[in-house]
């Protein structure tokens, strides 16, 4: 049962990945007991499942994902939400209750154009994703700023066991939320921090495939902060 790749090796569509008793996961297919890649990406072997993580591509909804969306249409029967995907999501009034402190529930009404952070509770190819906001930390997003990154780069913005997001929260702002669909929402107290955060997110997106990224991002934040301080000092003198 040979495997034709090392973990995290870049493979192209049609490339033979393995022969024998393996299972095909995301981004791969099985034919005559052989597993091929169907997309350009990084091949990963986990147990007996071989999957390929795409280098680029749109967001494909998955049950349990936290996403940030925009309300397209609102009616008493429910809302239609754009989640930066091939599929637009639906949310029904029964799951439009925000959970506040001490598990107090509050029904929230949305207007067209408003943003929300929600969780996908149901999706398959026969029906559109269905969202809910009745969990702590989910609900309407007010103020702040939204930027889009590539959905495939989202795991790097979160980092291994949340190391990157922890760093961003400690160094820059604790009001930052990342949707699996590639939309990042954050709110900061100052323009300087906002600019640094945008620059850092762009850097992570650009260098997502390299290793030791968290350490380099840490240095970049330090450098950018010092530059800002110098500018402020120069303006004051």
């Amino acid at each position: 049962m040979p495997v034709n790749f090392e973990n995290n090796q870049i493979v192209s569509p049609g490339e033979l990945l393995a022969e024998g008793d393996y299972l095909s996961g995301e981004g791969s297919f099985k034919e005559d007991n052989k597993i091929y890649s169907s997309i350009l990406g990084l091949a990963v072997l986990k147990g007996k499942i071989i999957s390929v993580i795409p280098l680029q591509g749109p967001y494909y909804p998955k049950v349990g994902d936290i996403v940030i969306g925009k309300v397209l249409n609102s009616s008493p029967a429910g809302m239609r939400v754009d989640i930066n995907s091939l599929y637009s999501a639906a949310i029904f009034p029964s799951s439009m209750n925000e959970k506040g402190p001490r598990s107090r529930e509050k029904f929230v009404q949305f207007d067209v154009g408003e943003n929300l952070i929600a969780k996908i509770i149901s999706f398959d190819r026969t029906h559109d994703p269905i969202l809910t906001i009745d969990e702590v930390g989910l609900g309407k997003l007010v103020g702040g700023r939204i930027i889009k990154i590539h959905p495939t780069k989202v795991p790097r913005v979160i980092g291994k066991k949340g190391s990157m997001i922890k760093l961003l929260k400690e160094e820059l702002t604790d009001k930052i939320k990342i949707g699996q669909n590639g939309i990042v929402w954050f709110s900061t107290n100052s323009d300087a921090i906002e600019d640094i955060l945008v620059a850092v997110l762009r850097k992570i997106e650009r260098e997502a495939h390299t290793s030791g990224l968290t350490d380099r991002v840490k240095e970049t934040i330090k450098k950018l902060k010092e530059e800002r301080l110098n500018v402020i000092r120069r303006e004051n003198t």
Binding site: V71, L72, S88, V112, N115, G143, G144, I146
Partner: peptide, 23 residues
């Protein structure tokens, strides 16, 4: 799907206007 682009998100609109107000 073109409605996605016609509806501008509130946050996006406000962030552009807030920036422009600061020059």
């Amino acid at each position: 799907m073109s409605e996605v682009y016609k509806i501008v998100s509130e946050i996006e609109r406000n962030q552009i206007i807030a920036k422009i107000a600061k020059g």
